[in-house]
Design a protein around this nucleic acid. Sequence first.
DNA 1: TTGAAAGCGCTAACAA
DNA 2: TTGTTAGCGCTTTCAA
Lengths: 353, 353
Amino acid sequence: MPGRGGALSYAACVERPTLKDVAKAAGVHPGTASRALNPLLRGRISAATTARVETAARDLGYVVDPVGRSLRSRRSGIVGVLVPDLTNPFYPPVLRGIEDELRAHGLEGLIATTDNDVRREAELIEVLKARRCDGYVLTTAVRRDPAVEALIGGPEPVVLVNRLARVEAPSVVSDDAFGIAQAVRHLRELGHAAIAHVTGPPRFSVTVEREAAYRAALRAEGLPHRRELVVRATDYTAAAGEVACARLLAEQRVTAVLAGNDMIAIGCYAALEAAGLRCPDDVSVVGVNDMPLAGWLRPPLTTVAVPQHELGTQAARLLVAHLRDGAAAVRRVDLPTRLVVRGSTGPAARDHH
Amino acid sequence: MPGRGGALSYAACVERPTLKDVAKAAGVHPGTASRALNPLLRGRISAATTARVETAARDLGYVVDPVGRSLRSRRSGIVGVLVPDLTNPFYPPVLRGIEDELRAHGLEGLIATTDNDVRREAELIEVLKARRCDGYVLTTAVRRDPAVEALIGGPEPVVLVNRLARVEAPSVVSDDAFGIAQAVRHLRELGHAAIAHVTGPPRFSVTVEREAAYRAALRAEGLPHRRELVVRATDYTAAAGEVACARLLAEQRVTAVLAGNDMIAIGCYAALEAAGLRCPDDVSVVGVNDMPLAGWLRPPLTTVAVPQHELGTQAARLLVAHLRDGAAAVRRVDLPTRLVVRGSTGPAARDHH
DNA sequence: TTGAAAGCGCTAACAA
DNA sequence: TTGTTAGCGCTTTCAA
């Protein structure tokens, strides 16, 4: 036998078997082999043929070539995933949820890091589009963003995670308001009346939502809302949180701080220490997210737990549904949050009242 | 004009222009257009033709279809990246380095999370191979691993990051021994004599290396090596580190701990607290890695800084070199480490001597 | 330097 | 149910 067939036992280790090889081994036409191997067309092929093809495929160690398949079927099996910053411990679990769920459906996520920079994001969207992604998951958080709006308007489905855009799109969000209400009640029950909010910049949709939730919670608990107790960090980082919290402490007397997220809460720890205040003895701190390290901080951080992994899982599931059913699929998934009480909250200090 | 051409201004938004469109617009053959657009063949095409093709491509907004290209050229432009666990803050910067450097060369990294589980890793390698990756970067750390050894023996180049396999492969490593020597000297200068080592499980190559470095450093500083001061955590996590450190504290009197990495150091903080010991007043702690949050811990962690981003950048660069030059490329890159002194180390406590 | 033509591996339309 | 055929978009021979 000439060519590849002659040295199959060796060649199989070097050159991968193609569908043609499988078809030949099974004694059927390549088209038939293709159908037999496709779970969706399983019903249209006789059981005997399917079995023969499957056996041949297994024996040869055949794996479909995604490149050939993509070229013909116009689907790449690749999903573009935009994430602001993996250095924020909130995102890795989200990504992991996305990764596992996509893989369960034979898809791969192509991850790109935006730094929350709208320009970089626009560039990355072009890169991902050039790769012919079948759809996109955006975990980035900027509210107004032309490139994202254009992407949402495009032909491929886009799922938003914990983010609201001006243009509507399928999204997975966490019910932060519920957890924040619990947090405020928890603080009120501990005797806190002056509860500050150190949040992030208003260009992120979570900032707006969480701040609104904070105000609503104060109202619900019968606490006064004082504008001067809300401070905005320039970013959702520990460094920015420290600066913002320091500003707050210099001007106001507070016994409790609701941080915009756990990273800002870490910054608050540092600011309190720098101001000679102890947490929770002098000032209680509550975060949002319950990121992986939250419980290992000193003191362990009391925080509103957002189901990070689930956020990713559901986002991927939603995208898969849209890939399959088009616009008919579900538009929005809402996940519950809950307060996790640890060591950063305690009774309101007397001398700060 | 019939077909696509007639409605180009609209169709360009929906259907992407193909190389054929570009060629037609430039009045050349598709093959010529392909060559004109390929930087490597630029020299073999007349300047005039190149200019015409480039203009046409720009006007039409042409972007090569990686799928068609891959099918023909047998290169996917995709690199498989295996990472143990993004939840460990050490890895995100490494990944970021890989991502940026690959992208600078027109490649994309396909990230897969192994959990340091050899079985899962083997599965993921199959998934990545099925995607026809051009090469691989492995940041996972298990020493003996048949799937990895098989991959290294395969046709695609593999670069190892901070890991040594039994089979040799191009790799990027950090000179941990240097930083660890600095750390031990730092502790000796602070008066510490009983320096323990809370490390990870021996199945990871870093465990073996860092432990050897610890022993060598003790010797260099003229300190005795006591076997019972080395404790192995079951994993490189805070939880496992806490357990291991608690065991150490129950049995030995120590004034300083060199942790196997920063996550274990966090576990040491917790174990010390649980044992009623203060850091650094009673026991000093040194980590390894200088992961992003290290400076935000309380106390801020003194640690051996490993250039995480650079590790990723160099790994990607090394892979690109191998993709281009084959086995001729560099085999190994060694990056320096240095001790970053923060707040978790202080003078040895008298009463613990 | 350019054109012509073939074909990578697969699947979808059509025919039997 | 299965075979046939064509072609996705690109690159790379070969020939001119």
